[in-house]
Design a protein around this nucleic acid. Structure first.
Lengths: 341, 341
DNA sequence: TTGAAAGCGCTAACAT
DNA sequence: ATGTTAGCGCTTTCAA
C-alpha cells in the first residue's frame, strides 16, 4: 500500500502548496467565487480532486458567518406524516444552497428545548419547527436567534414569526359537521393521549365543540399512548364497542388506527358506513388499498413543507422581507367509503 | 417593548463582560471543564442564562477540533425501516455526548456522494452509512475521512471499516428453503427495481439460487418503482396472477406491498396459505393487525442501529480500538398465517 | 483558581 | 487575476 495514512485531514494550505496557487485563489476556485483564470481553475480543481480534499465547513462558516443549514425540528420520524413534510422541505431546498438538518423531539417539550439549543448553537440560517406551542425557554431562543423561524402544521395560536399549516380546530369542526350532516349521532373518539399532541387535542376540541353546538355529546372516547399501529386500532375499537355497543360513528385521530378499526369492524360483519361510520386523519396515501377507503382529511403535509421552505429560502436571500407570513392551508375532507353522504 | 433587537448573536465575550469574569473562565463554566470556584460558576451560569447565551459550536469545534456529530446516511425516510434504525442509533447515542445527523440519498449513488461530501465537510466524529456498495468516490472519502465508519444493514460485500447487518442473500435463501419445505413450487416474486436497491437484489439472488438448487425456477416476477403502498401490492399481485394463474406462492420484497397483495387475494377468495402462500420482508410491526399475519423476516433494524452506534461510540472514546468489527445478525423468520408449515 | 496569548482553517476586505 | 492581512468565536496551552 502506498496510500499514506492520513492522520490530519487535508487543508486548503495543502492544496495550495500542491498546486502552487495561493490559498486564497484555491478558496476562490473551490467556491466558484471571484475571477479565476481558466488555467488556474482547472489546475486547482484537478489537484483538490486528486488529493481528495474535503473543505472544512466549520472554518468556512466561522470565517464567513454563513451557514447553509436550516434546522428542521419535528416530533417524530415514525409517524409517516413528518417524513412527508420533510420531503416537501427537501424538494424546495434542493434548488437552493440550503440544506435541512433534522432534529426530533419525541413530543417532549424538554427535548424540544434541548434539540433547539443544540441546533441553534450551530447557527443555522433558518428554523422550521413543528407546532406552535413551545416552552418559554424555547420561545425565547426562537425569538432571539436572529434568523427566520417558521412554525408549521398548526396555525391555532400565536406564531413567533412566520407560520404555515392548517387549523386543527377547524379540521375537527369540519369532520364533525360532515358526520352530523350524514346523520350519525352516537359518536366515539379514539386518539392519542392529548397532553403530548397539541394538534390531536385541537382536532378533538373542535370536534366536540361542534358536536355540542348540534346538541350531541361524545358517546365514548378512548386514548392511547405509544405507536399508532393497526393492532392498536383494533383493540381500542373492540374495547369501545363492547363498552358502548350503540356507537354509530368512530373518529380516529389518525389513519393508521382508523385502518385497524376498519379491518376489525369489517371482520365483525358491521355494515360500514350504514351501521357505523369511520373517519381518520392525515390522508396517508400508503394506506390506499384497504378493502374500503377510510374517510380522512388531508393535512397538506407536503405542501406545508414546501411553503415553509419557500418562506425560509426567500427570507434568507432577502432579509428585508420581514413579512411574518401566516399561511393557513385548507384541509380537504375525503369521505372515502366509510362515511355516509 | 424594551427587548433590544438582537442583530448580532451573543458571544462569550458578552457574557464575560456582563459577569465580570474572563472569557476563559466563562468558557470553563459553560463546559464544566477545569476548576472553577462555586461562586464564579453560579454567577456565570446565571448571567449566561439571563442573557440567553447560546454558545457558538462552530467556533468551539474549530478551536478544539472536536465535533460531537455522527453522520448517519440512509436511502430514505419514507420506508419505515430507516426511522427504526435511527431510533436504535438515537437510543444509544443519547447516553453519550454524540448526536446523530441524518442525510438521505434516495437510493442514488450520486446523491450519496454529494450528501457524504457535505457531511464530511462538517468533520463529524463518525459515520454510519446504509449499505455496503458505494461509488469509488464515496469509498475514497470514507476511507480517508479519518473517523470510524460503520456500514449497516448488509454484510454481503467488502466493508470499508466496521459493518453491522444481516446477509440479505442468506435471508433470501432462508425464505426459499422455508417455502420449498412447505411444498410450494410455482413461485412468483414481486419487488422493487433492482439496480436501485442492492439489499432487495441480494435477497432475490439468494432466493432464486436456492430455488434453483431445488430444481425450481421462478415462475413469474414483477418489478416496480416508486413508493411501496398497499395499492401497488394489489395491482402487481393481480397482474401477476392474471398472467400466471397457477402461482402458488408470492414472495414480496417488503411487507407493505405484501400486505396489499394479501388483502387483494383475500378479497378474491383465495385460500391462504393453502391455495397460495405469501411472504414479505422487514417485520414491520405497524402492520400487525391485518386480517392474517403476513409471513415475514425481521431485518433486526433497531438492533442494527444500536450496534452500529455502540461501535462508533466506543471507537470515539477509545481510538486505539481499531477493531474493524463485522457483526452479522440473524434475521428471524416469522411464518405468520400465510405460509404453510 | 484564574488569566493572557496563540491559533484552529477558512474567508472578507483590501491590496497589487 | 492573484496575493496579503486580519480576523471569525472559541479552546488550548502556558503562566500567574
Amino acid at each position: 500500500m502506498t496510500k499514506p495514512t492520513v492522520k490530519r485531514p487535508l487543508t486548503l494550505r495543502d492544496v495550495s502548496e500542491a498546486s502552487g496557487v495561493s490559498e486564497m485563489t484555491v478558496s476562490r476556485v473551490l467556491r466558484n467565487k471571484g475571477d479565476v483564470s481558466e488555467a488556474t481553475r482547472r489546475k486547482v480543481q484537478e489537484t483538490a480532486k486528486r488529493m481528495g480534499y474535503v473543505p472544512n465547513k466549520i472554518a468556512g462558516a466561522l470565517a464567513s458567518s454563513h451557514v447553509n443549514l436550516v434546522a428542521v425540528i419535528i416530533p417524530s420520524l415514525g409517524n409517516m406524516v413528518f417524513p412527508e413534510v420533510l420531503s416537501g422541505i427537501s424538494e424546495v431546498l434542493e434548488d437552493t444552497v440550503l440544506q435541512p438538518v433534522v432534529g426530533v423531539t419525541d413530543y417532549l417539550p424538554e427535548k424540544e428545548e434541548k434539540v433547539l439549543f443544540e441546533m441553534l448553537s450551530w447557527r443555522p440560517a433558518g428554523v422550521i419547527i413543528a407546532g406552535i406551542e413551545h416552552s418559554d425557554a424555547s420561545r425565547a431562543m426562537l425569538e432571539r436567534c436572529g434568523v427566520p423561524v417558521v412554525e408549521i402544521m398548526d396555525v391555532d395560536g400565536e406564531p413567533i414569526d412566520a407560520c404555515v399549516g392548517i387549523s386543527h380546530r377547524r379540521a375537527g369542526r369540519m369532520m364533525a359537521e360532515e358526520i352530523i350532516a350524514a346523520g350519525y349521532s352516537r359518536i366515539g373518539f379514539v386518539g392519542t393521549k392529548m397532553p403530548l399532541d397539541h394538534r390531536a387535542r385541537k382536532r378533538f376540541e373542535g370536534f366536540i365543540r361542534t358536536l355540542g353546538r348540534a346538541g350531541i355529546e361524545i358517546a365514548d372516547r378512548e386514548f392511547y399512548e405509544g405507536p399508532s399501529a393497526l393492532n392498536k386500532g383494533r383493540e381500542l375499537t373492540q374495547r369501545m364497542l363492547e363498552r358502548t355497543p350503540d356507537l354509530d360513528f368512530l373518529y380516529y385521530s389518525n389513519d393508521m388506527i382508523g385502518a385497524g378499526g376498519l379491518l376489525y369492524l369489517m371482520e365483525q360483519g358491521y355494515d360500514i358506513p350504514g351501521r357505523i361510520g369511520l373517519a381518520g386523519f392525515n390522508g396517508v396515501e400508503l394506506l390506499d388499498g384497504l378493502p374500503m377507503k377510510l374517510a380522512t382529511m388531508d393535512a397538506c403535509r407536503r405542501d406545508v413543507g414546501r411553503r415553509a421552505a419557500e418562506i425560509v429560502a426567500n427570507r434568507i436571500s432577502d432579509p428585508d422581507a420581514e413579512d411574518g407570513a401566516l399561511i393557513e392551508l385548507t384541509p380537504r375532507l375525503d369521505p372515502g367509503d366509510t362515511l355516509l353522504r
